[in-house]
């Protein structure tokens, strides 16, 4: 599913952008294959939003190139706008209009014929579960309703590429799940989806591929399992009994070390003589189970955990995402940023 034709739909090359003295993008490059659900992971202030705004032709970079489906976005912005659906982070809706009226406006701005526009609105209302409130005024909507409506406005013209900036920030679990489901469905139907997020678990659960953005650059790129795999193997915790003795643990350790594909075997005395180890290939675990059985040892618990994206982020940047968020929070100027975003 990752790469249907291998074609790169989005190509960002060496983008640079300053806001005053702040370097928002520092030679960022990004390639997104056709039909991929692509995650842009990084702390607030890493440059994700700037990157997406440039892609959607709202900002021009100081240097670099942007192309969508082979069309140069800097030279032919209108062609690119047709290919893209953009769901911005700040929800800009007209409180006086109903959701349906906003969608009708959006349809007209994308030049859909009226009958097609209205049919498409009915489809999206159904898809996103908006029947109950779509004819109410937007001013009365909750955060989750607004975000669904915003997603619908982005999808109305059936864009080849859907771009979402932090689509689930501050949402309740139900709305988040609904949005995730729609994004997966779109990807399965062949739409390329690019979303930014500072939620590790969101990118981990959703993305086919991801790029970690830090200080205006991509510092790691790949599928979630590639990135985690690069850290080296799965973490495994093995207990033969709930409480083993030291001798038994040593015996098991001997067995494990003798087995190929197992590294860093440690007896954890604090945890009832359980064993911690790293395996490069999960197939090794089956061999292990078999050998333990032959040695007449039971298996009380076998817990396997992959390195998390948090481990990947830590490895790439030397700090956790949480620490990065906290560091950035103090150094941002929301007023200046809002002014920058205003035309």
């Amino acid at each position: 599913m990752v790469s249907r034709s291998g074609e790169r739909v989005i190509e960002l090359q060496h983008l640079s952008k300053h806001y005053g003295s702040v370097q928002a993008l520092d030679g960022l490059s990004l390639h997104v294959p056709q039909g991929c659900l692509y995650g842009l992971l990084g702390p607030n202030g890493a440059g994700k939003t700037t990157c997406l705004r440039i892609l959607c032709t709202l900002l021009s970079p100081e240097s670099g190139s942007v192309s969508v489906a082979g069309v140069d976005a800097l030279a032919q912005p209108r062609q690119v706008r047709r290919l893209l659906g953009y769901v911005a982070q700040e929800v800009a809706i007209d409180k006086i209009l109903s959701g349906r009226e906003l969608l009708q406006l959006q349809g007209d701005l994308y030049h859909l014929p009226t009958s097609e526009r209205d049919r498409r609105i009915v489809e999206l209302v159904d898809l996103l579960g908006m029947e109950e409130w779509i004819d109410r005024r937007c001013g009365s909507y909750s955060g989750g309703m607004r975000r669904r409506l915003d997603l619908a406005t982005g999808l109305l013209h059936r864009p080849r590429v859907l771009v979402l900036d932090e689509p689930t920030v501050g949402l309740d679990i139900e709305s988040r799940a609904a949005i995730w489901q729609v994004l997966r469905q779109l990807r399965d139907q062949g739409t390329t989806v690019l979303l930014s997020s500072h939620y590790l678990e969101e990118v981990d659960a959703l993305a086919d591929r991801l790029a970690i953005v830090e200080a205006g650059r991509v510092i790691a790129e790949g599928t979630p399992s590639e990135l985690k795999g690069a850290l080296g193997g799965d973490r495994v915790t093995l207990r033969v009994r709930e409480f083993s003795t030291a001798e038994e643990a040593e015996r098991v350790r001997g067995l494990l070390v003798a087995c190929g594909g197992v590294r860093q075997v440690v007896v954890n005395r604090a945890q009832g003589y359980s064993l911690n180890l790293v395996v490069d290939d999960t197939a090794v675990l089956e061999t292990l189970r078999h050998q333990l059985m032959q040695a007449d040892l039971p298996v009380f618990a076998l817990a396997q955990s992959r390195p998390s994206l948090d481990d990947v982020y830590l490895q790439a940047t030397g700090r956790t995402l949480m620490d990065a968020e906290l560091a950035v929070a103090g150094s941002r100027d929301p007023k200046a940023e809002r002014k920058q975003a205003m035309r």
Binding site: C56, T57, L58, R78, Q79, R81, R82, L84, Y86, A88, E90, A92, I93, D94, Q106, L109, Y110, H111, T153, A341, M342, R343
Partner: peptide, 16 residues
């Protein structure tokens, strides 16, 4: 529209 970002919605659209 400028202040609340609605203008950005218009500018992202492929207005002729």
């Amino acid at each position: 529209d400028r202040e609340f970002g609605f203008l950005n919605r218009l500018l992202v659209a492929p207005l002729r």
